[in-house]
Simulated scan of single mutants.
Amino acid sequence: MPELPDVEGFRNVLQSCAQGRVVRRVEVRDTGVLHGVGARQLREALEGRRVTGTERHGKWLLARTGGPTLLLHFGMTGRLLCAHPDDPAEPHDRVLFTVARDRQLRYRDQRKLQGLWLAHDESDVVRLLAGQGPDALTVDRAEFEAALASHRGRLKAVLIDQSVLAGLGNLLADEILWRARLRPGTPADALTAPESRRLYTEMRRTLRPAVAAGRVPPRDTWLTGHRDTPDPHCPRCHTALRRTRVGGRTTVWCPGCQAAPSDTGRR
């Protein structure tokens, strides 16, 4: 599933491919990815408009035009790429935006779990993003700690709840909790002040290189680099990793170095 680093990568694609250029043609090949707008409405709203800016909030991507704003969400399998208009369309290319003779922005999505929305003005943008918490990349520590302290759920479930904190998904949450030495099932409102600070610090330390890579990188020194191996072991303490389910998601963690809430001598 695309998470914050992936969507930031898609923002870079959008920016390099389309920003400053006029949308010459919108081709909707599958209306199943459109939400609250029809193919004709989308064409009429965007064709002839210049892409003036790009923004990301959590897993949402915004393309500004100085008028209507296009919002994109990538669900489980969505992605954004820049192609040549003459390149054959792939089966899962759902909407094509031609922005130059040699540039075409393509929204590609196999499972179509999310898609595209059109905001006619800023109030529409605010309405569409109203359920989102603060962005995980830009949230300050005080806001982060307050958000966690106000929820009683298990820590991982709270971290991936987009209404609490926007942008974190399964891989990032597991990686951050492993780095912070906290178990995924720890009650979010039971963290001590040092644990909350450590969690925030490790989130920042994880997001920076992940954003640079455009993904959660499967490095040997990261939990992500070991979670899918046949016999996964912790790259830090070499304990066998465990798999459980938290918040309905497969969760990988280390029983050797991720402290339980009842542990004494917290690390």
Results as ranks from 00 to 15, higher is better:
132 Q>R: 08
181 R>H: 13
213 A>E: 12
43 R>L: 10
130 A>G: 01
54 T>F: 01
209 P>D: 11
261 P>L: 09
16 S>M: 05
156 K>I: 11
196 S>E: 08
26 V>G: 04
88 P>Y: 07
73 H>E: 07
209 P>I: 11
256 G>H: 03
114 Q>M: 15
35 H>R: 15
110 Q>P: 00
36 G>R: 13
129 L>D: 10
242 R>I: 02
213 A>C: 08
89 A>R: 12
154 R>Q: 15
48 G>I: 12
70 L>G: 00
195 E>T: 07
122 E>T: 07
214 G>T: 11
209 P>W: 14
2 P>N: 01
68 P>T: 09
108 R>P: 01
52 T>R: 13
154 R>H: 14
84 H>D: 12
257 C>M: 00
3 E>Q: 07
67 G>F: 12
156 K>T: 04
111 R>Q: 10
174 D>E: 04
203 M>P: 01
148 L>N: 03
60 W>H: 14
92 H>M: 02
239 T>K: 08
42 L>T: 14
16 S>C: 01
52 T>M: 12
11 R>H: 02
112 K>H: 10
216 V>E: 03
28 V>S: 08
239 T>V: 07
176 I>E: 06
247 G>C: 05
81 L>R: 13
266 R>Q: 10
92 H>F: 05
83 A>D: 14
249 R>L: 04
249 R>G: 00
222 W>E: 11
161 D>M: 11
163 S>C: 08
129 L>H: 08
19 Q>E: 15
195 E>C: 03
167 G>H: 06
193 A>M: 08
17 C>Y: 01
105 L>Y: 06
187 P>S: 13
39 A>L: 10
166 A>K: 09
62 L>R: 06
71 L>G: 07
262 S>W: 12
247 G>N: 07
107 Y>C: 04
113 L>V: 13
169 G>H: 09
20 G>Y: 14
120 H>L: 10
46 L>C: 05
88 P>K: 02
1 M>I: 06
14 L>N: 02
131 G>A: 14
5 P>H: 10
219 R>T: 08
262 S>T: 13
137 L>Y: 03
68 P>D: 09
147 A>N: 02
190 A>I: 10
262 S>N: 07
148 L>Y: 06
34 L>A: 13
171 L>I: 15
186 T>R: 09
126 V>C: 04
260 A>Q: 00
188 A>Y: 13
204 R>W: 07
125 V>E: 15
126 V>D: 05
33 V>N: 05
212 A>P: 00
83 A>N: 08
55 E>V: 02
113 L>R: 08
235 P>Q: 06
20 G>V: 06
82 C>F: 15
191 L>M: 08
160 I>M: 13
83 A>V: 15
228 D>G: 00
230 P>L: 04
24 R>I: 13
119 A>M: 07
201 T>Y: 09
14 L>Y: 02
94 R>W: 14
161 D>F: 10
149 A>S: 15
81 L>N: 03
266 R>T: 06
230 P>D: 10
59 K>M: 09
71 L>N: 08
212 A>I: 06
85 P>G: 02
128 L>H: 11
112 K>W: 15
38 G>W: 07
95 V>F: 12
197 R>N: 02
39 A>N: 05
166 A>F: 07
191 L>Y: 09
19 Q>P: 00
110 Q>H: 10
